[in-house]
Write a protein that binds this DNA or RNA. Structure first.
Length: 865
RNA sequence: GCGGGCGUGAUGGAAUGGUAGACAUACCAGACUUAAAAUCUGGAGGCCGAAUGGCCGUGCGGGUUCAAGUCCCGCCGCCCGCACCA
C-alpha cells in the first residue's frame, strides 16, 4: 500500500456495530479547531489568579513551506502548552515570523517581485499550513519582524541602547563582495568566494555599527552557571565561544629604542623558549614600516588578499617577513630576538603581537622550520639563554617551568599552577601584568541590505552622525525600490535618504545600512508579552509573563541567537524595558533533534545522482520499475529530495497522526527518522483507540470478572503517573510507549463497563496533549461535557500505584535464578525466609548457610553463597 | 589540536546501581476471509536441548560492588562543537 495516500475508509470491521463510525481525521480535526477558536481557549490572559506559564518555540523564517522539523518543534511546544493548560496555568504560547533577511531579496532578484510581497505571501501560506496542526497558539499575538510596528520599536530600542553607550561606530575589517557590493557574513563565504556572485571576497575596512556585547563577557559567562535547565552542551558551547583566558601581558624593548612591542601570552612559562617576536600584518608597526619599503608593502598586500573567513584562514599558507627589527628578551637583555610579520597573527586578539615558542607550539614550529628560525630548548636556555640550538621538537609538557622554579626559587609547579606562579613572578619583577581576555568580539550589526530594519540615524554635514528622534519612528523602508543592480537599493533611492537633521534642522542623509537579522530575533520573546504596545514592551505585561518558562528550538542556535538574546535581555533591563528577573530570558531550554529520512537516487549517463522523492519510491523501485540506491537517513533537505511534506501527511492521515509519530520512538533531543511504516503504525494506533472506545460505549452493561476492575484501575493510575512524569521531563517517547502499553491492557481487560469507560476517558486525556483532536472526539463520544483541552489533568492515586502483591526476583550470587510472589509490605526477615524456601535456593545452598542475603525492598533479593 | 557526547536484538529505542531488550517497526505462525487488505490471537536476543533447563549476551580489555548497560581506568569506533585565539 502506498502509505502516503492511505485511505481512512474501510476501517470498519465486521465485529463493529454498523452504527460505529470509523476514525476519520478529516472529519474531526477542523471541527475541533473551530471549537477551540470559538471558546478562545488559547487566548492568553492574566486572569483567574492562576500561575503563568510561557512556552515558546523558536519562530520560523517564512520560507513559504512548513517542513517536518517545524512540525516536530511546534508539536513539542504544544504538548507542553496543553499539559500546562490542563494543570491549571495561564499559558502564553505565541507564534510569529522572523521575516527579514536575504532570501526575500534574492527571490526578488531571481524571480522579480518585491521582498515585502514575497514575505507576506509566504507568511499567509505558512500560517495556512500550520493551522491544520491544531496548535494551541494565541494567534492574536502574531507579528512579523518586518511589520513597521515591530521594527519601529526595535529602532526605539536601538536609540535607547545608543544612549546607554551599548552601541558604537568603528572601522572594522569585513568580507566584501566586490560584485554584489555588499558585506557578507562569514557563513556566506564559500571557499573564499561570495556564495551568490562567485566573486573573490576581499577584506575591506568599513565603518560599522557595533553592539558592545564584549562589555558583558564576564557576566554572560558567569551567569551560565545559573542556567540549570539548559542543556550542558549549550552552556559549554557558549563558554567556549566567550573564551575566557588568563595570561601575561608584557613588552619587548626594542634594540633601536623605538616603541616597545607589547605581547600577550597564556603560556608565560614558555618564555625561555622564545624564538622570535611576531606581529600581525595589521599591527601599527607593520603599517609604519610599510611606508618606505616596497618589498614589505607587496608582502602586506598579499596578506590582505586572504579573506577573513575560517575557510580562507585554514587553507592559507603561513607567510612571514623579517622586519629587521630586534628586541631584547625581558629576562636577559643580552638575548636578542628578531621581529617578524606573520600572517597568522590576528590584530583583534590579544595585542596583535606574540612571542613564538616553537618548542611548545606546533604552529610556531612550522613557521620556524619554514623560515629557518631557531628552536630553543627551554632546558638549555636555563644554562645558556642564547638561541644556539636548532633541533627537534620538545614535548610541550610542564617540565619547562624549571626555569621559573630556578629564577624564583619556587617549588616544582606544573600546569595551571605553574602559569599562575609565573605570572606572579613576572609581576613582582616588573615584567608585565596578569591579564584576563575574552575571545568574544563586539557584534557588528550593519548590513548593506534593503530587507532589514533601518538603522535610525542620520548623517549631517555639520552635526555628524545624529540619532533620529523617537517621535519620527518608525523609519519605514520605502516600497519603491529596484533590484536590477547589485548593492543596496536604499543607496540609490531617489528621495528616501533625504531628511532633516534632528539637531540643527539642516538637510541631512539617512543611514542606509540596515540591522543584522539576528537583532530582530534577540527580543521578540519580550515583544510577545505585549505585541502592540507603543513602547518596545509593556512593563506590567513583561513582569507578569517573563521569563519564558520553556524555550524549544534547534541546537544550531546554541551560540549566536541564544547569546545575543541573553545580551539583549540585559540591555533591555538597562534601558528600562524588562524587569531585572528577565536578564536571563529563558528559564529552561530544550534543543530538539532533526527529522531525517532515507535518500533515494538513481544515476544518469554520467553517473551523476538523480534524487527521488519518497512518494515516488515503492519497495525500493520507481513507478517504472527502476531500482533506486538507498542512502542512510539524513536531515530532510530539498536538494536531496528526502522530504516529506507535512501537508501530504495531514491530508492522508490527519494532524494527530503526524504529531503522534514525531513524538514516538526517538527521544526528543535525538534525530527521528521519518518512515512511511512508522506513520502508518501511528495512524493504526489512533484508529485502534477510537475503535476501542466505540466498543466500550457500545456495550454499557458488560460485567467484570473477579479482580479485573481493580487491576485495570491500578494500571490506569500507574499510566497517569508515568505519562505525567514523561511529559514533565521531555520524555515524550517514553510517555507514548506507556500509552501504547495501557491501550493494550485496556483492550485485553475483563473489567466492567464502568471501569473501562473510566479508563478510556483517562486514556483520551493522557493522549490529549499529543492528539488533541482525537481526544476531544473521544471525550465527546464518552459523553463528557465541555472540552477535554480545558478539563483538569488526571491525578494519580498514590495508593493505587503500589501493588499489594509483588514479584521479587531471586538472585543467587548476582544471577537471577527464580522469583517469588510476596505481599508488598512484607518485612525483610520474612522476605529472607521466603527466599530461602525457594527450591532453586535450597538446591544451590546444598545444606550450607548463605554468606549473606541482600534484600532490596520491592526490588530484588540476592543470596550470596 | 582542544572540548563534549554516544556505542543495547534485524531496526527505532526502554531500563532511580537491582528481573537487560519495555513500547513500536520489520519478521514468523494461527483465527476471520473464496482471497487479499484490515482486524484479532500468539511467537521471537544468541547458542545447546524433545523439554524442565543450562551457558553466553549492552563496542573491546580491566576494576569497584552482594549486584554494572548504568560508576571508575585504559583502548577502539562513530557523531557534534570550537580553533592560525598566542
Amino acid at each position: 500500500m502506498d502509505a502516503y495516500h492511505a485511505s481512512n475508509t474501510s476501517l470498519l470491521c465486521k465485529k463493529d456495530s454498523p452504527a460505529m463510525t470509523p476514525y476519520s481525521a478529516a472529519d474531526i480535526e477542523e471541527k475541533w479547531q473551530h471549537a477551540w477558536d470559538n471558546a478562545r481557549v488559547f487566548h492568553a490572559t492574566r486572569e483567574g489568579g492562576k500561575p503563568k506559564y510561557y512556552v515558546l518555540e523558536m519562530f520560523p523564517y517564512p520560507s513559504g513551506r512548513i517542513h517536518m522539523g517545524h512540525v516536530r518543534n511546534y508539536t513539542m511546544g504544544d504538548v507542553v502548552a496543553r499539559y500546562k493548560i490542563a494543570t491549571g496555568h495561564n499559558v502564553l504560547h505565541p507564534m510569529g515570523w522572523d521575516a527579514f533577511g536575504m532570501p526575500a531579496e534574492n527571490a526578488a532578484m531571481a524571480i522579480g517581485g518585491h521582498p515585502k510581497d514575497w514575505t507576506y505571501g509566504n507568511i499567509d501560506d505558512m500560517r495556512a499550513q500550520m493551522k491544520p496542526l491544531g496548535l494551541s497558539i494565541d494567534w492574536s499575538r502574531e507579528f512579523a519582524t518586518c511589520d513597521p510596528e515591530y521594527y519601529g520599536q526595535q529602532q526605539a530600542l536601538f536609540l535607547d541602547m545608543l544612549e546607554q553607550g551599548l552601541i558604537y561606530r568603528k572601522n572594522a575589517v569585513v568580507n566584501w563582495d566586490p560584485v554584489d557590493m555588499t558585506v557578507l557574513a562569514n557563513e556566506q563565504v564559500e571557499q573564499g568566494r561570495g556564495w551568490r556572485s562567485g566573486a573573490l571576497v576581499e577584506r575591506r575596512e568599513l565603518t560599522q555599527w557595533f553592539f558592545k556585547i564584549s562589555d558583558y563577557s564576564e557576566e554572560l559567562l558567569s551567569a551560565l552557571d545559573g542556567l540549570e535547565n539548559w542543556p550542558a552542551k549549550v552552556r559549554l558551547m557558549q563558554e567556549n565561544w566567550i573564551g575566557k583566558s588568563r595570561g601575561l601581558q608584557f613588552s619587548f624593548e626594542r634594540v633601536d629604542g623605538g616603541e616597545p612591542i607589547e605581547v600577550y601570552t597564556t603560556r608565560p612559562d614558555t618564555l625561555m623558549g622564545a624564538s622570535f617576536v611576531g606581529i600581525s600584518p595589521d599591527h601599527p608597526i607593520a603599517k609604519t614600516l610599510e611606508a618606505g619599503n616596497p618589498e614589505l608593502a607587496t608582502f602586506l598586500a598579499e596578506c590582505r588578499k586572504v579573506g577573513t573567513t575560517e575557510e580562507a584562514i585554514e587553507t592559507a599558507e603561513k607567510l612571514g617577513h623579517d622586519t629587521g627589527l630586534r628586541v631584547k628578551h625581558p629576562l636577559n637583555p643580552d638575548w636578542e630576538l628578531p621581529v617578524w610579520i606573520a600572517n597568522f597573527i590576528l590584530m583583534d586578539y590579544g595585542t596583535g603581537a606574540i612571542f613564538a615558542c616553537p618548542a611548545h607550539d606546533q604552529r610556531d614550529l612550522d613557521f620556524c622550520r619554514k623560515y629557518d628560525l631557531p628552536v630553543i630548548d627551554t632546558f638549555q636556555a636555563l644554562e645558556n639563554p642564547k638561541p644556539v640550538e636548532r633541533h627537534a621538537f620538545v614535548p610541550p609538557k610542564t617540565e619547562n617551568v624549571q626555569w621559573i622554579n630556578h629564577f624564583a626559587g619556587l617549588d616544582q609547579a606544573t600546569g595551571q599552577e605553574a602559569i599562575d606562579k609565573t605570572i606572579a613572578f613576572c609581576e613582582s619583577h616588573g615584567i608585565g601584568t596578569g591579564v584576563t581576555k575574552y575571545r568574544l568580539r563586539d557584534w557588528g550589526l550593519s548590513r548593506q541590505r534593503y530587507w532589514g530594519c533601518p538603522i535610525p540615524v542620520v548623517h549631517c554635514d555639520s552635526c555628524g552622525v545624529v540619532p533620529e528622534r523617537k517621535q519620527n519612528l518608525p523609519i519605514e523602508l520605502p516600497y519603491d525600490v529596484t533590484f536590477d543592480q547589485p548593492g543596496n537599493p536604499l543607496d540609490r533611492h531617489p528621495t528616501w535618504r533625504g531628511c532633516t537633521c534632528p539637531e540643527c534642522g539642516d538637510p541631512a542623509l539617512r543611514e542606509t545600512d540596515t540591522m543584522d537579522t539576528f537583532v530582530d530575533s534577540s527580543w521578540y520573546y519580550a515583544r510577545f508579552t505585549a505585541p502592540h504596545a507603543d513602547t518596545p514592551t509593556d512593563m506590567a505585561e513583561a513582569n507578569y509573563w517573563m521569563n519564558v518558562d520553556q524555550y524549544i528550538g534547534g541546537i544550531e542556535h546554541a551560540i549566536l541567537h541564544l547569546l545575543y538574546s541573553r545580551f539583549f535581555a540585559r540591555a533591555m533591563h538597562l534601558t528600562g524595558h524588562l524587569p531585572a528577573k528577565a536578564i536571563e530570558p529563558f528559564d529552561a531550554l530544550f534543543t530538539q533533534g532533526m527529522v531525517t529520512h532515507e535518500i533515494y537516487l538513481t544515476r544518469d549517463a554520467n553517473n551523476r545522482p538523480l534524487y527521488h522523492l519518497p512518494e515516488e519510491v515503492t519497495d525500493g523501485k520507481l513507478a517504472d520499475g527502476t531500482p533506486v540506491e538507498i542512502i542512510a537517513s539524513a536531515k530532510m533537505s530539498k536538494s536531496k529530495k528526502n522530504v516529506v511534506d507535512p501537508i501530504n501527511i495531514i491530508s492522508a492521515y490527519g494532524a494527530d497522526t503526524a504529531r503522534w509519530f514525531v513524538l514516538s520512538d526517538s527521544p526528543p533531543e535525538r534525530d527521528v527518522e521519518w518512515t512511511a511504516a512508522g506513520a502508518d503504525a501511528a495512524h493504526k494506533h489512533l484508529s485502534r483507540v477510537h475503535r476501542l472506545t466505540s466498543q466500550i460505549i457500545a456495550d454499557p452493561a458488560e460485567a467484570a470478572t473477579q479482580g479485573a476492575d481493580e487491576a485495570l484501575l491500578r494500571e490506569m493510575h500507574k499510566t497517569i503517573h508515568d505519562v505525567t512524569v514523561g511529559i514533565d521531563s521531555f520524555g515524550f517517547n517514553a510517555a507514548i510507549a506507556r500509552l501504547y502499553a495501557f491501550t493494550n491492557t485496556l483492550a485485553k481487560s475483563k473489567a466492567g463497563s464502568d471501569t473501562k469507560h473510566k479508563a478510556a476517558t483517562t486514556l483520551a486525556q493522557l493522549m490529549s496533549p499529543m492528539t488533541p483532536h482525537l481526544s476531544e472526539e473521544l471525550w465527546q463520544m464518552l459523553g463528557h461535557k465541555g472540552l477535554i483541552t480545558t478539563a483538569p489533568w488526571p491525578e494519580a492515586d498514590a495508593a493505587l500505584l503500589v501493588d499489594d502483591t509483588i514479584t521479587l526476583p531471586i538472585q543467587i550470587n548476582g544471577k537471577r535464578r527464580a522469583e517469588i510472589s510476596v505481599p508488598a509490605d512484607m518485612d525483610k526477615s520474612e522476605v529472607e525466609k521466603a527466599a530461602l524456601a525457594v527450591d532453586a535456593v535450597i538446591k544451590a545452598l546444598d545444606g550450607a548457610r548463605p554468606r549473606k542475603i541482600i534484600v532490596v525492598p520491592g526490588r530484588i533479593v540476592n543470596v550470596v553463597i
